[in-house]
């Protein structure tokens, strides 16, 4: 099996160098010590003043590559191990264990060097985070020309493929309106929560939906009128089939006659689909369906009676 092959290949990295001849980017220094103590709320006086030592738990900090990383320290062998794991889908990493031994204190001015060896690579393991491999490295941290060992640092990471969290399918989105130069003004109005009706600039005939010319006189000149928002259900259909994503049939689609006399197709809301009636008074409102989509819909005006009927049905 592919997976077992990988385990065998990974085992072969044990005992090989992870870092060779690493150099601390900065010598042990007071500002980094102070920043660390500030972040962690550590007020130990041993870490300040002329005789300050570095907090021993900063051992690893002096070996970190920082934002720009270490140019050469990481061995090609270790890079290879990590990219093998990446290729196996184990692209995420989390540190799980850190074991440090401090052989002597570090003081500002100390120049750090370090070497690290791949101590072990685990079998394939599954944790809450996902499935992957534990990789343990052991680092010796040295100071000075003689390379005196000042600390050891054993570090274990879990390199894993994130568990596929039960993805709740994103709710399908409503279809986007097709916006073109002939109707852009309408959708800009909707964005401002205004329902704009086109009016012929020559004969004043209202028209909806938006069109380039007047159907009464043919004039291409127009301006707009803001709909008052009052209307009645002129007609409606109840959609049962076909089901479209983002819509839950059955639902009522109304042809609403606005007080201004033009008609618009939209949802009738605030009333069950089977309680929509011709002549029902409705009022315009705007609903935001998602980050990009606002639509004008029509809410049934006086639904007390209707709702009572529904409640009765439910109770029954």
């Amino acid at each position: 099996m592919v997976v077992e092959d990988l385990s065998v290949r990974l085992k072969a990295y044990e005992g090989r160098a992870a870092v060779l001849g690493g150099h601390g980017k900065d010598p042990v220094n007071a500002p980094m010590i102070r920043h660390w103590c500030e972040a962690l709320g550590d007020t130990n006086p041993a870490y300040t003043g002329p005789d300050a030592i570095a907090p021993p738990t900063m051992l690893q900090v002096w070996t970190m590559g920082g934002l720009s990383g270490h140019a050469t320290a990481r061995s090609p062998v270790y890079e290879e191990l990590l990219s093998l794991l990446d290729d196996a889908g184990c692209t995420s990493v989390v540190a799980t264990d850190c074991e440090q031994e401090y052989l002597r204190e570090l003081r500002p001015g100390d120049e750090i060097t370090f070497d690290s060896v791949i101590e072990s690579v685990s079998e394939r393991k599954t944790t809450k985070l996902g499935t992957g491999y534990f990789v343990t490295t052991r680092m010796d941290v040295r100071v000075g020309d003689e390379g005196e060992i000042v600390g050891t640092h054993r570090f274990r990471i879990f390199k894993y493929a994130p568990a596929t969290t039960k993805k709740t399918e994103p709710k399908p989105q409503r279809p986007r309106p097709v916006v073109n130069r002939d109707n852009a003004g309408f959708w800009e109005g909707v964005e401002r929560h205004e329902l704009l009706i086109q009016r012929c600039a020559d004969c004043a005939t209202l028209r909806f939906p938006w069109l380039p010319g007047c159907h009464a006189c043919g004039s291409p000149e127009w301006d707009t009128v803001r709909a008052s928002g009052e209307g009645v259900v002129h007609s409606y259909v109840v959609m049962h089939h076909p089901p479209f994503p983002a819509f839950e049939p059955p639902y009522a689609v109304g042809l609403v006659e606005l007080a201004e006399g033009v008609r618009i197709v939209s949802d009738v809301v605030g009333v069950p689909y089977d309680k929509v009636r011709i002549g029902m008074a409705v009022r315009l409102e705007f609903i935001r369906y998602d980050a990009e989509l606002v639509l004008p819909v029509f809410r049934a005006e006086d639904v007390a009676e209707v709702v009572e009927e529904v409640v009765d049905e439910v109770v029954a």
Binding site: L40, G41, N44, P55, T57, Q60, A95, Q100
Partner: peptide, 11 residues
Amino acid sequence: NILTTNGLVGR
């Protein structure tokens, strides 16, 4: 991160 936890345990 683990370094911060390490530092807090030491502290």
